[in-house]
Design a protein around this nucleic acid. Structure first.
Lengths: 210, 210, 210, 210
DNA sequence: GATGAATGAGAATTCATTCAT
DNA sequence: AATGAATGAATTCTCATTCAT
């Protein structure tokens, strides 16, 4: 009756291969639109073999989201309350934009999930995420109260960071359609740098702008 | 030579009922996730009757998107090149946020479509939308050149407006999970008002904000 | 409670229009392949109106077959026992070929019906048709016994006439594919004229046969 | 680069079972009249399992026709230009009649397909079939020119052979209704033997004809 | 671990027919 | 006499999942 043998190398590798394939497919087609057939083909495995590693389509999706969430929250955790306010926040913006650039599939998967009512991650949102945001909001509030950044609703500031960075991965097609050639992220970096510095205001930086 | 008889009252009403039901379902489940069964149930019609009014699931979806697009572009068209720059842009922000508040289903439908690669509206994006954005960008560029707003990449500014306003409808669940009770849009209005005024700058106007 | 008013002119005309449209469609698509929609469109009437004149799809089909059968049997009835044997039979061949040429849709409709086991006209086949063939077979047998045509199984002779003439309408596509341009019926006439004269013999030619 | 694995035993057997069942059903009901349900029942398989072996109803039908065509053309290919003309042609007649007797379902399937305009095999008809007929027609023409058979249009002669033999399978129901008991093919053999010998001429009998 | 075979539960769509006017 | 509206009963096809090896 022993269970839970440690995963062999093959198991580990295959689970990763499957999750990567699933990410590819789920992020493009949504949960319902994705089929095990396509995931299996992308993964280069047989359909039953998929289900040997994950008990169901749902299980794959869940594993994917679970793995994703920590990656998604980490940059927020990295804000240092004792650092320089503007630089801390700008750092967060940059890390978030980098995530959007480097992991667009993850961003889209997450976006689709939320758009559809977050049926599978609602608990995390009102649990872990909310706590983390509350905490960070406290820090930001402190900075604002101390006059180290312009006054701002810290939660809405965080939403703004999410919105402005993820927009570049989630609405990629639209952005490219409007911009034509060229890397949207190059422009995004410069733009968001300016935008957030203005929003945060802060001593001399304000004066020079404009 | 067209034989198209004008739609009767019943036809008009039922087509509307169906489109409304379809919007409800498509915006929640995506195209693939939506079933005619559910749409029919929401519309209070039988499934074959649905197909009496629209020839296929696809046709319903298309009619929905087509109707949506003009509503979505109108606020951009309303920007007046001869108006006050800051007020014109702020007006656009407000109209866009109102749309997100009042038509969240439409916003989500649109978001899902783009997220999945815009298979059905790509032409509009690189056609009508791009032209409209180009035009507006020209206007904004003029304002910036004249020093009437802070220098800014006009296209990315427009993206920012889209991102920040639609975020409140598209990521509604997440926002509510984080904020708890209360109307997110109330906070959003205040926040975006401040944010965009800072972005657009405007000499002395900064001092008094918030 | 009076019933069965005599059909008005409109009724008569519409029934004919419907039957013609039905012939067109049934002969091309078969019974199951044909749809009331298509028949209605070809007839230029609405679907419910079709069913005002004929109570069901089946009823249309049946009316069609019933009307067809007498046309189909008439040429056989026209054989005159007191006429010249070869000329009587050749006349039948010619009339049958003319039918195939002028009424290919009827021929195909009939063929499809038989091919599918004649579910709707089996009684006629083993009733009226069989009697008529028996009768004609007697006549032919008499001619053969009298040495006025070459000896031949009269029923199989009749089958041969049917087969050789109807082939030109029923397998029209194949024949045209093989022959290329030109009117297949022109060649058919000459060919069948020769073929049947040889089969029936003709004075001296008979001597060596059988 | 082809990945097509060789079919396993089960695959081979099941594909055959399905094709046989499909032949049964398609030849009785036509393409539209046939349902996967009936085919599955006849084959003793579940409906989805049918579609595991053939991707669609159409695919089954196509596989069926494809397999059929070579069988159908082979007897024509077997005519030996260097053989005795009358015996070669009589041999073809006999082989074709045997086919009609032994493979009536195939004959009917083919007939239905042609009757409905040969939507799926038109290319073969005007390609392979036409070439083969042209070739054989050349041989027959040579025989006629050499006076070894009575003069005849070779293509129409071939049509006559097709018509007279296939009639016994395609119009089976009608023939049995007319003949009553007994094997129609027994009579057919004798009849066609005489008929074609007379058509082709043969020694003295030719003298008077034409 | 891996895969060919099989299937039940849907899903979209078609179609003959009925209803109401 | 005619037709717009509506539907129940198929029918084809898809798909997650299971079975057997």
């Amino acid at each position: 009756m022993k269970d839970e043998k440690p995963p062999t190398r093959i198991q580990k590798k295959n689970r990763e291969v499957i999750l990567d394939a699933a990410l590819e497919v789920f992020s493009q087609e949504g949960f319902r639109g994705a089929t095990l057939d396509r995931i299996a083909k992308v993964a280069g495995l047989s359909k039953p073999n998929l289900l040997y590693y994950f008990s169901s389509k749902d299980a794959i999706h869940e594993a994917l989201l679970r793995g994703l969430l920590s990656t998604w929250l980490d940059p927020l955790r990295a804000i240092d309350p004792s650092g320089d306010p503007v630089e801390e926040i700008m750092g967060y913006v940059r890390r978030k934009l980098a995530l959007a650039r480097d992991y667009p599939r993850e961003s889209r998967l997450f976006a689709i999930e939320i758009l559809q009512g977050a049926p599978r991650i609602a608990p995390v949102l009102s649990g872990e995420l909310r706590e983390l945001v509350d905490e960070t909001a406290g820090v930001i509030d402190g900075w604002a109260a101390a006059g180290r950044i312009a006054p701002v609703d810290p939660r809405h500031l965080i939403f703004s960071i999410w919105a402005l960075t993820q927009h570049y991965s989630d609405f990629d097609v639209q952005i490219r359609a409007v911009l034509g050639d060229g890397d949207p992220f190059a422009g995004a970096e410069i733009h968001l740098e300016a935008v957030f510095r203005r929003i945060l205001g802060g001593g001399p930086s304000l004066s020079g702008v404009n």
